[in-house]
């Protein structure tokens, strides 16, 4: 029950100053404290634009700037100096006149195209990454489906089990596979003990070990997006299909997989893209014949001290990955437009 009208709210003299504004006013204006306080109170006041601003700053600082540095490097020339490349832009003094000389050196890209080692390395990286992605998908699809169909109370635990390995260092987990796969390792001991094989299998230092390493390391990246799309699926769709006489296997391919398709695409990209440039797994588990672009990049950078060529290798790898993905996204967007209800 209300007793009369409530008192009108007092007219406030504007919002009260934040603690950082107070700090700003009390400190000498040029002290680092005051500058910091000013920055923070600015963020507090303009929260919304700051939130949008931060990802842009992040992208510019940690993606665009490094990208342009690498791009610039890829056009320069390796020299024996500190740093080990020739400057791209140079001020030249010619008979008293100053010129800005720019030297674009395309020889690194020409080397990439003419030396078959690089072409072979790119192709073999793409092949290894594609195979590993398909293998990961084969493991992840049933796994994600099982988690999505598990009782509600179990799901969180099962998801945690997928994510749990991330809490240990990636490097240590890959090292652990050496102990499992080597000739006198756990796997061979188990198989020999069970009498399934009579001689140890040579797995370590082969491409098979690289596939195992990639599937193991990237599995969560595949499971999580697929699980997310399964999770949104309405189970009554399957029931309806079965009621209408559809066999379970057909309903899986006709209903479940198309629904999970965006998750499958996202998962495949999350696995394929880093796997192409993978260095640690082929280096530790692969043999000397495992030719991957990540290792070649290491050799160019560290053994040959050829930073410009290493940069060119990286730029070409980026193009190989970005162009098809952009094309794919565009065609996806067009398809969505076409299929959208008029």
């Amino acid at each position: 029950m209300q007793q009369g009208r409530p008192a009108p709210p007092p007219i406030s003299p504007g919002p009260p100053p934040t603690p950082f504004e107070v700090l700003d006013r009390t400190l000498p204006p040029t002290s680092p404290w005051a500058i910091g306080a000013r920055l923070i109170s600015l963020i507090e006041k303009r929260g919304r634009s700051a939130v949008i601003f931060i990802p842009y700053v992040w992208l510019v600082l940690f993606f665009l700037v490094p990208f342009f540095i690498v791009l610039k490097l890829s056009f320069s020339e390796a020299v024996l100096a500190q740093p080990p490349y020739a400057p791209l832009l140079d001020l030249v003094d010619e008979a008293g006149n100053w010129y800005l000389s720019a030297r674009f050196n395309l020889s690194n890209y020409i080397t990439l195209l003419t030396d078959d080692l690089y072409v072979r390395a790119y192709l073999s990286s793409l092949k290894i990454a594609a195979t590993a992605t398909l293998l990961t998908l084969a493991v992840a699809l049933p796994l994600a489906y099982a988690i999505a169909r598990a009782p509600e109370s179990w799901r969180l635990t099962l998801l945690m089990l997928i994510i749990l390995p991330f809490w240990t260092s990636f490097l240590i987990r890959v090292y652990a596979w050496i102990g499992i796969l080597k000739n006198e390792g756990l796997l061979n001991a188990l198989l020999l003990g069970l009498g399934l094989i009579s001689e140890p299998l040579i797995i370590l230092n082969t491409n098979v070990a690289v596939y195992i390493g990639i599937v193991y390391s990237y599995l969560p990246f595949m499971v999580l997006p697929i699980y997310a799309s399964f999770d949104r699926m309405d189970p009554s769709l399957i029931e309806a299909a079965i009621d209408l006489g559809c066999r379970p296997s057909t309903s899986f391919w006709k209903i479940t997989v198309p629904i999970a398709f965006p998750g499958i695409v996202a998962g495949c990209m999350l696995v394929f893209i880093p796997a192409v440039g993978e260095f640690v797994i082929p280096d530790l588990l692969g043999g000397s014949q495992t030719l991957m672009i990540g290792r070649l990049l290491w050799v160019e950078f560290f053994s040959n001290r050829d930073w410009p060529l290493a940069s060119a290798v990286a730029i070409v790898l980026l193009l190989i990955l970005v162009l098809p993905i952009m094309y794919f996204q565009r065609s996806q967007a067009r398809r969505a437009e076409r299929e959208a209800p008029q």
């Binding site: 390796a78 020299v79 024996l80 030396d115 080692l117 000397s288 014949q289 030719l291 070649l296 050799v299 053994s303 040959n304 001290r305 050829d306």
Partner: peptide, 20 residues
């Protein structure tokens, strides 16, 4: 080795290691 020879040496080494 100088830069050019170094590249040749590493390239030979790469070819040897990746030979089957």
């Amino acid at each position: 080795y100088d830069q050019k020879l170094q590249r040749l040496v590493t390239r030979i080494w790469q070819r040897v290691k990746t030979a089957s």
